[in-house]
Simulated scan of single mutants.
Amino acid sequence: MQDLVNAMADMMEDKVIELTNQYLDEGQDPVAIFRAYQEAMEEIGRRFEANTYFVPELIMAGEMMKTGSELIKPHLKNDAEDGPAKIGKFLLATIEGDIHDIGKNIVGMMMDLNGFEVMDLGVDVPADVIIEKAREFNPDIIGVSGLLTLAFDPMKGLVEKLQEAGLRDGFKVLIGGAQIDEQVSEYVGADAFVTDAVAGVNICKEWMAA
């Protein structure tokens, strides 16, 4: 299915849908088709890291993946209707005081496409709500987004409240945003920081593999 991988990696949306329908009509394994989409997403991620693709390409790729999944899902067996098994759980939110969601949404999409079960709490989410949902969802990783410098203190407050609740050792905490750096990550007490979605996926996959 390399032609499907290539078509998606090259942003040929019509060709991707045509090939997907063709493979399904031929009776090809729907899970194998889904994995071709994942392989294409990995290539798109590499191009993003190399600065040959940018945010619009990531968004377009996500739309292609969503459309493809809708085509593939009816062909999956009941015992595998969600495709390949999930590799971990990822809780995601934009921290209280910040309403930016484009970066968060891209991270959520990329994490989902790379095998994580994602719970997205939205924007302007207080630390107490994140902790409450973490108790319910029991994620492996808590991802917190914040574009504004005003988000740094609420992020720090979240980590402190996790510690106070005796929950800090139960989760990896990943923070993200264009203005976040190593110094901010240390101030917040996070396990890692990222400034783009692809790097975040790579870090989370490394954590789960370990």
Rank of each mutant, 00 (worst) to 15 (best):
G45E: 07
M41G: 08
G68H: 05
E117N: 13
L71H: 06
D128Y: 07
V123K: 07
V184H: 07
T149D: 12
M11Y: 13
G97D: 14
A93P: 04
E182A: 15
Q163G: 08
A210V: 15
D98R: 12
D79R: 14
N202W: 04
P154D: 14
K104D: 05
G27Q: 09
K73D: 07
D153S: 11
G83I: 08
H75C: 12
K133G: 03
A93M: 05
I203V: 09
A210G: 13
I142Y: 00
G45Y: 11
G189C: 11
L148Q: 11
G27K: 09
V129I: 14
F90E: 03
P30D: 06
D196N: 15
E182T: 09
N6K: 10
I95E: 05
K89N: 14
V5H: 06
G122I: 05
I130W: 01
D181G: 02
A197V: 02
G45W: 04
I72P: 02
E136M: 14
D82R: 04
N202D: 11
R168C: 00
V118D: 02
M119F: 07
D10S: 13
L92R: 01
D3I: 12
N21Q: 07
A210T: 13
V107M: 12
G157P: 10
D98H: 03
P30C: 04
G88P: 03
A85S: 08
G177P: 08
G189W: 12
G170Q: 05
G177D: 09
F90N: 01
P56E: 06
F48M: 00
M41L: 08
A199Y: 01
M155H: 06
L91P: 00
D120G: 00
E57Y: 00
V198R: 00
A7S: 14
G62Q: 01
D191I: 11
P139N: 12
A134V: 07
H75A: 09
V16Q: 07
E43I: 15
L58T: 01
M60H: 04
T52A: 13
T149C: 10
P74S: 07
E132R: 10
V118S: 03
T67F: 10
V198Y: 00
F34V: 02
Y187N: 04
M64V: 02
V201G: 12
I87D: 05
W207G: 02
N51R: 06
M12H: 09
I17Q: 10
M111W: 05
V129E: 14
T52M: 02
D196E: 03
I130N: 05
G27M: 10
I17V: 15
Q183N: 10
P126T: 08
D79F: 15
H75W: 03
M60T: 04
M109S: 01
P139Q: 03
V159S: 07
N51S: 09
S69N: 10
E186M: 13
K89C: 03
E18W: 04
A7I: 14
R47Q: 07
M11Q: 12
K77G: 14
L24A: 09
D124V: 09
N21K: 11
D196R: 03
I106R: 00
G143M: 04
D128A: 13
E206P: 03
F152C: 01
V16G: 14
N21S: 02
Q38E: 09
D25E: 13
Q22G: 04
